[in-house]
Design a binder for these strands. Structure first.
Length: 504
RNA sequence: GGGCCUCUAGCUCAGUUGGUUAGAGCAACGGACUUUUAAUCCGUGGGUCGUGGGUUCGAUCCCCACGGGGCCUACCA
């Protein structure tokens, strides 16, 4: 297509755009033009002296019909309008959600400015007003406007504020959701404060925050299907990371003894109420720690976050129920809790055939070559549902945990825990496997699994093994889903804790 | 991946057992109103009924395909 053709087609598209406009958008575009004729529909600077929050704070409880003598200039989004012939009311909203009323009367602003206001200001516009802080005859804290200016003209109408938005509209137009729904703003604030709190806890313990590669030539550190992409410069296949683990361990080899990363992981798997294809993950490693010390750290991170953000360890969830995160969290053994729950002694030596018999009796279908897979499935069936309070489930089967050290005294299990809160897996922690010879054997076993068709089996990462061969100190490590943590702290679904979840 | 449900105005929703011109509230437009709080009152406009095909004299409604969304189910954190 030639440049001229391209331009013509662009103009055609522009015409089409303007012809097909919904009535309200056409009307607002005309108002925008009018504002630009008179001045500027989008001025770069406005003489703002106060925020809405500041004015509200300064006058928490004025009597009815008071004039304070204080003159302010402030701006906010017009959320409601109530116009009478010679007196207009507008409710202005700040980004914080704070609101204040603006009043425009004929004798203060004059006929021309009042008429222009009525003609050009719509719901949703950002409006600047300057005038005296007063209360109305009904006691509403207000600005008695001397002059007003459009701060930013909106072209699309806000949805009506008297019905809840549909779920799909909320997710696809989160910026609207944030404007009209207090809870949406609150969740963003909570998430930010939780991150601040966790970084503070880490800093107090001398952990360094680092960033490791998201684009990787070999994906590792977890069992999951990766997203694939391609590098033109290197002409090679790349993977979006499924976990940062193998790079954070390289950092520990390098002497970054206390290290953590909070960043995104990507897993090419199903999405539902508790899973998102991209999700925020915290991983932390502590040299000369083990799975006990890292469990202590995990408990501290979550309890500090609850205390810093909500001022209590007993957090109230969306449905009104209480999630009690207080006290020392229980630590139970996977094999012992499973044995107790199903009434049969189950150990790492229990033959697969016997485990299969129990599974069949319970109506659980398992088709997997690994002993540990049966144990974990049975455990989830018998025990998981009953775990409401925070609980560390300790000492997992060896064959499903290729990056974890063998238990120091119990045969057939590794030093790994999963943290469950309200029945959801919240975090996992290890005494890290640092023996490069055993690590190589574990990877080889994974490669065999992959050869037998398991798409989630780990790949053998020679560069990571080489790093281990230079000596990694004994370490504890943990990983925690941030979105999941937010769910535990609020009771919301994952798509509400992520500001912009993936939508088709 | 499998099953069930759903898509109507800017937003939230009615509705049509297939029949002339598809409705409401808020929003918009015109008018009245100097203390409103979803202001009120009078009037007006606004729709490819998700998209494409089929059945029919006639389809927004019935059928098929496709697309978006939701719930359940399976895998994974």
């Amino acid at each position: 297509m030639s440049n001229a053709d391209a331009q013509r087609s662009e103009e055609a598209q522009q015409d089409e755009f303007e012809q097909d406009l919904p009535e309200q958008i056409a009307v607002r575009l005309a108002k925008r033009d009018r504002l630009n004729e008179l001045g500027d529909a989008y001025p770069v600077a406005l003489p703002i002296t106060h925020t809405i929050d500041q004015v509200r704070e300064a006058y928490p409880a004025l009597e009815v019909d008071v004039a304070t003598g204080e003159f302010v200039g402030l701006a906010g989004r017009v959320m409601f309008q109530r116009n009478t012939g010679k007196l207009c009311f507008a409710t202005l909203q700040a980004g914080s959600g704070q609101r204040i009323q603006a009043m425009l009367s004929l004798d203060k602003v004059g006929e021309e400015q009042l008429e222009l206001y009525k003609e050009l200001v719509d719901l949703g516009d950002h409006l600047f007003v300057s005038g005296e802080v007063i209360t109305s005859k009904r006691g509403e804290l207000s600005i008695m406007v001397d002059s007003w200016k459009m701060a930013a003209k909106t072209i699309r109408p806000l949805p009506n504020l008297h019905n809840e938005l549909g779920e799909e509209y909320r997710v696809r137009h989160r910026y609207i959701d944030l404007i009209v729904r207090d809870r949406a703003r609150e969740v963003v604030q909570i998430r930010s404060k939780v991150m601040q709190s966790m970084r503070k806890t880490f800093a107090e313990r001398d952990f360094l925050e680092v960033e490791t590669p998201m684009l990787q030539t070999i994906h590792g550190g977890a069992s999951a299907r990766p997203f694939k992409t391609h590098s033109n410069a290197f002409d090679t296949e790349l993977f979006l990371r499924i976990a940062p683990e193998l790079f954070l361990k390289r950092a520990v080899v390098g002497g970054i003894d206390r290290v953590y990363e909070i960043n995104r992981n990507f897993r090419n798997e199903g999405a539902d109420r508790t899973h998102s294809p991209e999700f925020a993950m915290l991983e932390a490693y502590q040299a000369y720690g083990d799975y006990n010390s890292i469990a202590d750290l995990t408990q501290a991170l979550i309890q500090n976050a609850a205390m810093d953000v909500f001022g209590t360890h007993q957090v109230t969830l969306e449905d009104g129920s209480i999630n009690d995160l207080g006290g020392e969290w229980a630590r139970i053994s996977m094999f012992e809790s499973l044995s107790a729950a199903c009434g049969v002694e189950i150990t790492p030596e229990t033959p697969i055939a016997e485990l299969k018999k129990i599974a069949d009796k319970e109506g659980i279908e398992i088709d997997h070559p690994l002993h540990g897979k049966y144990v974990e499935e049975l455990w989830e069936h018998f025990v998981k549902g009953d775990l409401v309070n925070p609980t560390f489930v300790m000492d997992f089967p060896v064959d499903t945990s290729p990056l974890t050290r063998n238990h120091r005294s119990k045969a057939g299990v590794v030093e790994k825990w999963d943290l469950y809160i309200r029945g959801y897996e919240q975090a996992t922690g290890y005494s890290e496997l640092v023996d490069p010879v055993i690590q190589r054997e574990r990877f080889v076993a994974q490669v065999q699994l992959a050869a037998s068709g398991d798409p989630e089996a780990m790949k053998l990462d020679e560069e990571f093994l080489k790093a281990l061969e230079f000596g990694m100190p004994p370490s504890g490590g943990m990983g925690m889903g941030i979105d999941r943590l937010l769910m535990s702290l609020t009771g919301l679904g994952i798509r509400e804790t992520i500001m912009f979840p993936l939508v088709k």
